[in-house]
Design a protein around this nucleic acid. Sequence first.
DNA 1: TTGTATGCGTTATCAA
DNA 2: TTGATAACGCATACAA
Lengths: 334, 334
Amino acid sequence: MATTIKDIARLVGVTPTTVSMAVRGDKRISLPTRERVLKAARELNYRPNYTGRNLVKGKTNILAVVSPFFSSLFAVDIMRGIESSAGAEGMRMNQFSSRGLREKEAEMLREILYSVRPRALISISLKPAPEIVEEYRKENIPIILIEEVISGVSTIKTDNKKGGFLATDYLIKKGRTRIGLVVGKLVGELGGENASERLEGYKEALFMHGISFNPERVVEVLHYSFEDGIEAFSRLHKRDAEFDAIFCAAGDMTAAGVIRRARENSIKIGGELPIVGYDDNIIAPIITPSLTTVRQPVFEMGRAAIDLAVEVITSREKVRVINFDPVLVIRESA
Amino acid sequence: MATTIKDIARLVGVTPTTVSMAVRGDKRISLPTRERVLKAARELNYRPNYTGRNLVKGKTNILAVVSPFFSSLFAVDIMRGIESSAGAEGMRMNQFSSRGLREKEAEMLREILYSVRPRALISISLKPAPEIVEEYRKENIPIILIEEVISGVSTIKTDNKKGGFLATDYLIKKGRTRIGLVVGKLVGELGGENASERLEGYKEALFMHGISFNPERVVEVLHYSFEDGIEAFSRLHKRDAEFDAIFCAAGDMTAAGVIRRARENSIKIGGELPIVGYDDNIIAPIITPSLTTVRQPVFEMGRAAIDLAVEVITSREKVRVINFDPVLVIRESA
DNA sequence: TTGTATGCGTTATCAA
DNA sequence: TTGATAACGCATACAA
């Protein structure tokens, strides 16, 4: 069994209370006693048992992080940011994956709330149902959303409309006017606001340059996958509306698929057909040609999420919305 | 505040003991009472508090997963496998990253052992020091290593020697005899057994075909990164020993770098210079040309790790070593 | 400066 | 079938 304060108390010849205070560095314990206790603690390899400590304190030191998947490149970079923060000293991170099952979310979030009882919830690309949000509010557990928005809840996100604008504006300034758009599902059960916002930015750039919007140049994809990109290019290719550039707002992986299929059609990416992606994840610099893309500061977003979590826990501040600016990273593909 | 068994007890007019037994479905509580309790529990949205439960049980429901980084593609695929397993029902996963800091590992592993007190430890690409292993053994917390080997500790790994052999043998059968090898650091502080084993497989394939081993064709890299690959190709290129194929045993990302630099030198990958990678991660199918590579069943390894963890916890079985077989996945690059 | 008593939410043991 | 009591490891209020 592990060492407890009782073991130390017995060894040193004081009470558990004294040990408890001494190991936490309480000044009320005299220096000599404190040192004897700490020496014994070291010798017995004592560590406080979080379970006991949390129980008596009525709260845990747990930060719950939830996501449909932790294995997406986006989630991975968020986690890197979260890992990087020193601010969460003394906090433990618990990950909970819903494995993409929407029907599992509510139950998972309730179990976290009532059984795990974390100090805060960080939700990556997952939008808790309104009644769940209400339950968290009642229990005073702050929620920090990443890439989702709920009114009255803290959010970390990047400005998708601006991202859409940046990419489109860049292509237009390169002299392109018939820009194909590959974007995530816009409406329905799986429709995302982020996709819609990127479309907005695309439209705004067109409008600003006096180019009319042609829905024939827009292709929606579901999974943001490489295969989605391959298929998207083919669909775009079959359409009547011609295109002289592609903005793949559905992420770099999909852009890689678009590029792959375009090259198979002997199209020269860049000069002949510029392509811009979205995310700037690990694959952007390594595919051929390397990908010009809208960078989301994902690492920084993860770090902001955890810093905000710590801030919200320690202070009394309620809700904050942090909006990051996307940046266009120019490489070979456009 | 959250509902406790006391609240329910008060409401139903029984004692907390009865509630505790009823919510756990204990048959000793009569059906009518059980139903009244469960009804009240539902109404008050009761969930057992893990902190209290764990304290009295003297153990947690936590599975600790440690790794230098959770953001490597390897770790990501392992986590996908871990996420996918249904076997860990009722278990909570705690991730702990040492952020690549070797000097942080021991302290982290001790804090996990004594303060978190998980039911098992899954260690990805991280080799705990012998004294740490001993402390876990003393506390009866099983360790499951992934891609590391310590005698007397459970391990999930793939046969690296076989992987090295598969790739080299394939290239030789394609008529190549002067095969360059890009491999991880072999000796010293950062030297890895996995790299050495892959080299062994490479040598064995050469030997089997009567080809002499030329150390001039071997380049070691440190980070398994894209940049490593770029540099590795340049170094190989400068050497006196010619090469007519490259086996990049230092992973797909490095292989991508090798390919990038080779193409910049106007070398045609595949026909002129076949290149084989190692891992078969997310980038292998999307780079150009798509990568022929030694597939490690990483997803399956993650799943095996968690299944083994659950098995070791629930049964009395001690130590198991699970060795996966690598497979050569043939694409365009060789 | 140190000790005593109490309780956090739960389960286990034993008694009724 | 249900209840009373104690205990898990720790922290806190209060007493000495």
